[in-house]
């Protein structure tokens, strides 16, 4: 085997490895995780793939909030000290991109993970 052939072989091998690594990084998927933030600071992270129901007690800007993950992939606000109760009435979040927001408490629950397929949400 000639020296130049070996170089060609090594170059092909490196290129293939880089392609595979890139592909894996690009297509890496995580299970749905809900991130709870107050004033843009993460106060809790909930694994929505967990089959165990979970109740979280957090403190918003106005007061306490009770957040429930039902163990079936959904998360919602069960109780909140806000005048409008919009967060409590919001449909539970379960898919990447879904949110439950309590504006008076500066609290946002976001389901993270790839797969929303859109750039922005008109809402």
């Amino acid at each position: 085997m000639k020296r130049s052939d070996r170089i060609v072989g090594v170059v092909i091998l490196i290129a293939l490895m880089l392609t595979i690594v890139s592909w894996i990084v690009m297509h890496r998927t995580r299970g749905a995780v809900a991130v709870v933030r107050v004033n843009d600071k993460v106060v809790a992270t909930v694994d929505l793939t967990s089959l165990e129901p979970q109740t979280l007690h957090i403190t918003g800007v106005l007061g306490p909030l009770v957040i429930v993950a039902d163990g079936k992939g959904s998360i919602r606000v069960a109780e909140a000290t806000c005048p409008d109760q919009i967060c409590v009435h919001t449909i539970p979040a379960r898919s990447p991109g879904d949110q439950v927001i309590c504006v008076p408490n500066h609290m946002v629950i976001t389901v993270e993970g790839k797969g929303t397929g859109i750039d922005a949400l008109a809402q």
Binding site: V11, L18, W23, M26
Partner: peptide
């Protein structure tokens, strides 16, 4: 042909890698 093929594959791989 071999070097050309190598060049094409290497180019594609490197482009993908660096773009990312």
């Amino acid at each position: 042909i071999a070097p050309i093929v190598a060049l094409i594959i290497a180019g594609a791989g490197l482009t993908t890698f660096f773009a990312l």
